[in-house]
């Protein structure tokens, strides 16, 4: 169990399960490859034949629109055959286990699984189980990781800021339940961002988060001071039902991003959000639609980054 389960013996990428533990060179290679795919998306014929004849299964055990769609578009632009499976709770309740499902789909000559699951570690379990020629891409597992989101975020940052070594980045919101935040933190620290801040009330931060190399702020005004990048996290509605937060109103007042608070960041700071946004909960519409927002470009770049990940895996 000591071997990194997502790397081949030669150190190349076999699966993409988490950014945690990946060397900087692999991240940079993915970002550079994504760069080359940007032009493909701008061509009249938006296709390259890199994955022709490959069968990619989008295995979504949890609802998703954006991630599933961008994975589908990415695979199709690489000329792969894409099969979308939305496996809801009902088919699991028929008694078929997760690994039974994977075995059955493997028997249909799958080359790659793109997996989203509500449980942390689900993608690792599938990766441990599949035949050696099959690649697994984690499209989000519980609170653990969402590596392609983390990669598209750093890709977006590189597009707008050029370098990583001189940046201050603030991640604001529900870090505790966020696989996106974990992947962003690993990506940013691996790529050499000197100062990554997380801003949240104590009830939304996991124990020992500073050991991931971040500075913790509970005061958003202090945390946003002079940052180059502001990443807002989605606050899921169910968090309001527990005892972690008192109300949407109070959350927005203290941790929602408004123009006034954004003014504390550097004038050229960019605003990011992994989507889907709760306008008026974690972000004000005027900021989300404002000139510093790069939220829609994030979605566009997501396709190029996922093309890069899938083509690199298939080539290894």
């Amino acid at each position: 169990m000591t071997l990194n389960p997502q790397l081949n013996a030669d150190g190349s990428l076999r699966h993409l399960l988490t950014i945690d533990g990946l060397p900087r060179a692999i991240l940079t290679h993915i970002l550079d490859t994504a760069e080359s795919f940007i032009s493909v998306s701008e061509q009249e014929v938006k296709k390259v034949p890199l994955l022709r004849g490959k069968a990619i299964f989008n295995l979504f055990f949890e609802a998703s629109t954006r991630t599933r769609t961008t994975f589908e578009i990415a695979a199709k632009r690489l000329s792969a055959d894409v099969i979308n499976l939305n496996i809801n709770a009902s088919s699991q309740s028929k008694g078929e286990t997760l690994l039974d499902t994977v075995d059955n789909l493997s028997a249909m000559q799958a080359d790659m699984f793109v997996v989203r699951h509500a449980q942390s570690g689900a993608a690792h379990m599938i990766a441990r189980h599949v035949a050696p020629h099959i690649h697994v891409v984690n499209a989000g597992d519980g609170r653990h990781a969402h590596p392609t989101q983390g990669l598209l975020d750093v890709f977006t940052i590189r597009k707008y800021k050029g370098e990583f070594h001189n940046l201050r980045v603030a991640i604001v919101g529900d870090v505790l339940h966020s696989r996106v935040a974990r992947s962003q933190i690993h990506a940013l620290t691996t790529l050499g961002v000197p100062e990554v801040r997380v801003i949240a009330p104590k009830t939304l931060l996991p124990v020992g988060v500073e050991q991931m190399g971040v500075h913790v702020y509970h005061d958003m005004l202090a945390g946003l001071k002079d940052v180059d990048v502001v990443i807002m996290l989605r606050l899921q509605n169910e968090r309001m039902r527990g005892a972690r937060l008192p109300s949407v109103q109070e959350y927005f007042k203290y941790y929602g991003l408004t123009q006034e608070k954004l003014a504390l960041a550097r004038p050229d700071a960019i605003v990011m959000h992994p989507g889907p946004m709760n306008r008026g909960v974690e972000i004000d519409s005027s900021v989300a639609d404002g000139k510093q927002s790069v939220i829609l470009p994030q979605v566009t770049y997501g396709i190029a980054v996922r093309m890069a990940v899938m083509s690199i895996l298939a080539g290894n």
Partner: peptide, 15 residues
């Protein structure tokens, strides 16, 4: 356990 491993792996924790 509510410690760094659960934080890193994103596992719901018991303090």
């Amino acid at each position: 356990h509510d410690g760094f491993v659960a934080t890193r792996l994103g596992l719901p924790a018991i303090p």
